[in-house]
Design a protein around this nucleic acid. Structure first.
Length: 610
RNA sequence: GCCUCCGUAGCUUAACGGAUAAAGCUCUGGUCUUCGGAACCAGUGAUAGAGGUUCGAUUCCUCUCGGAGGCACCA
């Protein structure tokens, strides 16, 4: 797709018309808003430029917006363009464009020729680094991570399609008290034959001498991250019941870990490997990939140097007790301590170091962090401090904040035991799917293996779509029965529309894309698909620019609705006329291509059979 | 106390300051001698409240009410 987008050309035509008719106007082509009118009788594109000009220009006092619009329409019409069938003014002063059906049919042919490349922009010579998921290495992923993964991977796909080079990265939170809790829990409760002692050093010594005395994920038949997660919960519980004793034990453990004590590091490694193994299985299921993994354990001590340099350069201030602080008042943000009075670093210090590594290793045009909305202020301050240090520009950093995921009871917490784990949710939805398939006798001609694959793809599609179709910032309540839909505005609805289209195409001759597309009376159903297909590239572009996959969801659902309506009311294979069948098959094929491509943007599989 | 985000139909959501506020679920009724019924068609039903800016406000501003998150020398 090296050709200019139709929107860009329309914008230029309108801009030229404004320059000619109203030389005094101070506008740029980007100021011209083009939209698809909600009502089809208002054409394919509309602009409110006449209303805007009228509102912003004193010298237009004597004219009504409609008169302004009419003068512009005449100017636009002078630039004869065969792609536009009709330009007219309407309502208070809109200018509506109706595209020619010939041009729209040409787009159908282009879609079929380009196949999966349709909607993809040429290389923009730009790079984006997207941080996503970033798990704690002491327990399995929960539904919050699921939202993170779905958003992050979709964003990556959207930017890739928009011509950007994409680097996905994650930070593994693999050190700290939460990790020690899992380790302590394992030492205390993971033993095959319970021991009497509960001092961490004795237990650890026994484990090092004979690790075989302790259970493994294989012994328990558990996914390894679930296995470790259980001990984390037990460790936390023990801590709550023995605050003083266990608190001291954990503090000692952490100190030993930081002192690189060989024994504790060995246990840490074993447990960490198990969690990674389990999380990687979930990643695979969800299609999550990273090009770069950072480890907090390797970088956590860095950052102090940068802060001290900042202090020397007068960027930060030293408090009477010795703590170092960033004064953020002029940015309208609360001040932030960066180094404690005892000289130790805090999380922000580490995050600055990590970000420095990131921008040094990956020189990019944009850096995005997919992290929950509870961290909004953290990132605001991180970006400002980073800029204060002269390490980067704020406008190149973006925190894609997503709302909290909660369960009907309220906020999820391991303490309340109401955490919904990612794999558990997917498994439950899969059960629902399998039940539905059996009840409705769907997929009768599929083998057991194919049915299983379809159920997995459908349940993942259902969950991802549920997450992605709403604005990222909104909080999400996950109620299994209510939230996850397999019908209507849902992932499976889109997958099904694709499968049906492919099924029809399989039963036909392959449409001859080189032939002239037969014209004649075009039904309303065909028309409504036709005037939707060519919009796909601009939808991808807009969704990427706004960091918002829900724009893709809305578009695809609308397209699938139109296709289903067409499918139900118009015979495709046997309309009683061969050339009519050809035309409808081409429309079907173009729709299938776009549905598949769009589903890919959402990380949802489109299947030939389901 | 201070800051940020969110309040649209019974429920879950759409609508870049614009044209008749759009869907899905639910409920009610209908569609199949055809290409896959996870489908299609129809009906009921909404901008939290009060002001303001604007030719025009779900959208912007102010206040009130309701919900969520943040504001540590926590991570």
């Amino acid at each position: 797709m090296t050709k200019k987008a139709i929107t860009e050309e329309l914008r230029e035509m309108i801009f030229a018309a404004v320059r000619k008719e109203f030389p005094e106007a101070e506008i740029k082509p980007e100021d011209i808003l083009l939209e698809h009118p909600a009502s089809e009788e208002h054409g394919d594109y509309a602009t409110n430029i006449a209303l805007k000009l009228k509102a912003n220009s004193k010298w237009l006092l004597a004219q009504s917006p409609l008169e302004v619009a009419e003068r512009l329409v005449n100017r636009i019409a002078e630039q004869k363009d065969s792609r536009i069938k009709k330009i007219e003014t309407a309502g208070p002063g809109f200018i509506n464009f109706k595209l020619s059906p010939e041009w729209q049919w040409e787009q159908v042919k282009e879609i079929i020729l380009a196949e999966e490349n349709y909607g993809k922009s040429p290389d923009k010579q730009k790079k984006i680094v997207i941080e996503l998921v970033s798990p704690n290495i002491n327990k399995p992923l929960h539904v919050g991570h699921l939202r993170n993964a779905a958003l992050g991977m979709s964003l990556a796909a959207l930017y890739q399609a928009s011509g950007w080079k994409v680097v996905r990265d994650e930070i593994n939170n693999d050190r700290g008290l939460h990790i020690m809790k899992a380790a302590y829990g394992y030492l205390l409760y993971g033993r095959k034959n319970p021991a009497k002692q509960n001092g961490w050093r004795d237990l650890l010594g026994a484990w090092v001498a004979q690790p075989g005395l302790w259970k493994t994920p294989v012994d328990e038949g558990l996914k390894p991250d679930y296995f470790v997660g259980n001990y984390y919960v037990l460790g936390e519980k023990f801590l709550n019941e023995n605050i003083k004793f266990a608190g001291e034990q954990l503090a000692e453990m952490l100190q030993a870990w930081e002192a690189e004590d060989k024994e504790i590091r060995r246990l840490w490694k074993v447990l960490g490997d198990w969690v990674h193994e389990g999380i990687d299985q979930t990643y695979k299921r969800l299609g999550v990939r990273h090009e770069k993994r950072w480890y907090e354990s390797l970088l956590y001590q860095e950052g102090k140097k940068v802060i001290l340099e900042g202090l020397e350069n007068g960027v930060f201030e030293k408090l009477p007790d010795g703590a170092i602080r960033a004064n953020l008042e002029k940015y309208g943000l609360p001040n932030k301590i960066l180094i404690r009075s005892d000289g130790t670093a805090i999380y922000m210090t580490f995050d600055i170091a990590l970000t420095k590594h990131k921008v040094e290793e990956y020189i990019a045009d944009k850096y995005v962090w997919v992290v929950g909305s509870d961290q909004i202020d953290h990132f605001k301050r991180l970006f400002v401090i980073f800029e204060m240090l002269g390490l980067g520009k704020r406008e190149n950093f973006f925190h894609l904040a997503y709302g909290m995921v909660r369960v009907p009871g309220g906020k999820m917490s391991s303490r309340l035991g109401n955490v919904v784990l990612a794999d558990d949710l997917l498994d439950k939805v899969k059960e629902m799917t399998i039940k539905l398939m059996a009840e409705r006798k769907i997929g009768g001609e599929l083998s057991e293996e194919e049915k299983e694959k379809a159920a997995e793809a459908v349940s993942i599609g259902a969950v991802k779509y549920t997450i992605l179709k709403v604005d990222p910032l909104l909080n999400l309540v996950f109620d299994l029965e209510k939230s996850i839909s397999l019908e209507g505005d849902s992932g499976p609805y889109l997958q099904y529309a694709y499968t049906r289209a492919k099924s029809v195409l399989r039963k036909s001759q392959i449409p001859n894309t080189n032939s002239q597309i037969p014209r004649g009376d075009i039904s309303n159903e065909e028309q409504s698909i036709l005037r939707y297909l060519y919009r796909y590239p601009e939808v991808v572009e807009v969704a990427a620019k706004n960091y918002n996959p829900s724009i893709i969801c809305n578009y695809l659902f609308s397209l699938a609705q139109r296709f289903n309506s067409f499918y139900n009311n118009q015979p495709i294979l046997n309309p009683g006329n061969e050339s009519l069948s050809d035309r409808r098959l081409q429309l079907t094929e173009a729709t299938a291509i776009i549905l598949k491509s769009g589903l890919n943007m959402l990380g949802i599989e489109a299947m030939e059979k389901m």
